[in-house]
Amino acid sequence: MTDGRSVFDFAMPIERRQPWPSQKWQRYDSDVLPLWVADMDFASPPAVIEALHRRVEHGVFGYGRIPDSLRDSLCGWSDTHYGWGIEPRSQVWLPGVVPALHLACQALTEPGDGIMTVTPIYPPFLKVACQHGRQSQTVPLSAPSTSGDEWSLDAEAIEATIRPETRMLLWCHPHNPTGHIWRDWELSVVAELAERHDLIIVSDELHCDLLLDEGACHQPLAYRFPELAERIVTLWAPSKTFNLAGLTCACAVIPDRALRQRFMAGTRGLRPEPNIMGLVAAEAAYLHGEPWRQALLETLRSNRSQLSSAVTNWSGAELHWPEATYLAWLDLRNTGLGESPTIPLLNSGRVALSDGADFGWPGFARLNFGTTPDRLAEALWRLGQMMSASSQ
């Protein structure tokens, strides 16, 4: 098999501060290496870029519509990669997964209802309930107690947190920030609780095409439990897999007609159309992006190994092997860097990580290893210097 990295270049650094503004690269000073927001430093697949060029050359950018060919491409992707045969009519295209979380909350729950999620969790999850006058209910995951353990769902804790007013579970599958792929028993717990307590599940599966271990295969929650179709909204997007976040395009897959109609009716007037360029990019990615994705996975596996090797030399730091995403969840509570370790790592180490407090877990940090190997090596060296200094 040809090494995809010889066909697609994931090693060449791309200037991202100029001429186009970048949230990731312009939030901090020019000497800071940014490994924070979930945005990779790689050019998107050539097929996507070529499709966008063709669309730009058309020259007219008026109101668009969802093409049947895009719906068909997502059906094909789902069938090929997950074994889930979805229908074109089950798709509701949206301008992003985070807006979809808010829209689902608005459409499928009432003021005062409880919205539950497990922590740590990427920050938008923690803002949905309060922003819509709902009750925020959080349940901590079971943290690894030894190097051989893994993050896991605490079934007793989630059961104890459910109240009569609990109406929705915001689920992240696979999990951001830990990179955990939920085990079958964990998904079964979620399914049983949802049915018994009459919960709607919004399953954010944004990183589902970035399972890093060889042979790993994503199982959408709605596919795993088809009997729960009337209560599951599945959220997908090409944004993380193909580095297209700025094109704001996502899809809610809602096979149950009644639930889909509730979602559509409850978001009417609030639900903007997706970016027409995002629609073009999504279709090209789903039709032609698989070779690029396979090459990307090889690069991310290598970067993950590089990161893991570095962390073993950081006194007090712990990393539990991320199974998915290009994000690593670091336990820095015993490094001597203080209650907010990302602050000294930024101020003195000149590396920007995401603060664990924003995910509900102070003392942790999320590191984005979706960058070139050389940039990652430099960032890891800087972090290692800080860890050594703090332990002395």
Score class of each variant (00 low, 15 high):
Met12Thr: 14
Ile14Glu: 12
Ile14Ser: 04
Arg16Ser: 12
Trp20Cys: 07
Ser22Met: 07
Trp25Pro: 03
Asp29Thr: 07
Asp39Gly: 07
Phe42Glu: 10
Ser44Pro: 08
Ser44Leu: 06
Pro45Tyr: 03
Arg55Phe: 01
Pro67Tyr: 09
Leu70Asp: 05
Asp72Gly: 12
Leu74Cys: 04
Cys75Trp: 02
Gly76Trp: 04
Trp77Ile: 02
Asp79Cys: 11
Asp79Ile: 06
Ile86Cys: 03
Arg89Ala: 15
Arg89Lys: 14
Trp93Arg: 01
Pro95Thr: 06
Gly96Pro: 05
Val98His: 09
Pro99Asn: 12
Leu101Val: 05
Thr109Leu: 10
Glu110His: 10
Gly112Tyr: 02
Gly112Phe: 07
Gly114Arg: 08
Ile115Pro: 11
Thr117Leu: 15
Pro120Cys: 08
Tyr122Val: 14
Pro123Tyr: 07
Pro124Glu: 07
Phe125Ser: 12
Gly133Ile: 09
Gln135Ile: 10
Ser136Pro: 09
Gln137Ser: 04
Ala143Asp: 00
Pro144Glu: 02
Pro144Leu: 12
Trp151Gly: 13
Ser152Ile: 05
Ala157Pro: 06
Ala160Ile: 01
Glu165Lys: 10
Met168Lys: 13
Leu170Val: 11
Pro174His: 09
His180Glu: 07
Ile181His: 07
Arg183Asp: 01
Glu186Met: 06
Ser188His: 10
Ser188Gly: 14
Ser188Tyr: 02
Ala191Gln: 01
Glu192Leu: 10
Ala194Ser: 14
Arg196Glu: 13
Asp198Ala: 15
Glu205Thr: 09
Cys208Thr: 09
Gly215Asn: 04
His218Asn: 07
Gln219Leu: 14
Ala222Phe: 02
Arg231Phe: 10
Thr234Phe: 02
Leu235Met: 11
Ser239Lys: 00
Lys240Gln: 14
Leu247Ile: 01
Cys249His: 01
Cys251His: 06
Val253Lys: 03
Asp256Val: 04
Leu259Cys: 08
Arg260Tyr: 02
Gln261Arg: 12
Gly269Ile: 01
Leu270Gln: 11
Arg271Cys: 13
Arg271Asp: 06
Met277Asp: 05
Met277Ala: 04
Met277Gly: 00
Met277Thr: 00
Gly278Asn: 01
Glu283Gln: 15
Ala284His: 00
Tyr286Ala: 12
Glu290Thr: 02
Glu290Lys: 14
Pro291Val: 00
Pro291Phe: 06
Ala295Trp: 00
Arg304Tyr: 05
Ala310Asn: 14
Val311Tyr: 05
Ser315Asn: 12
Gly316Trp: 09
Glu318Lys: 14
Thr325Ala: 15
Thr325Gln: 10
Ala328Cys: 15
Leu332Phe: 10
Gly336His: 01
Arg350Lys: 15
Val351Tyr: 03
Leu353Met: 11
Gly356Asp: 12
Gly360Asn: 04
Gly360Leu: 07
Gly363Ser: 09
Leu367Gln: 08
Phe369Asn: 13
Arg375Glu: 14
Glu378Asn: 08
Leu383Val: 02
Gln385Pro: 05
Met386Lys: 08
Met386Pro: 03
Ser388Leu: 10
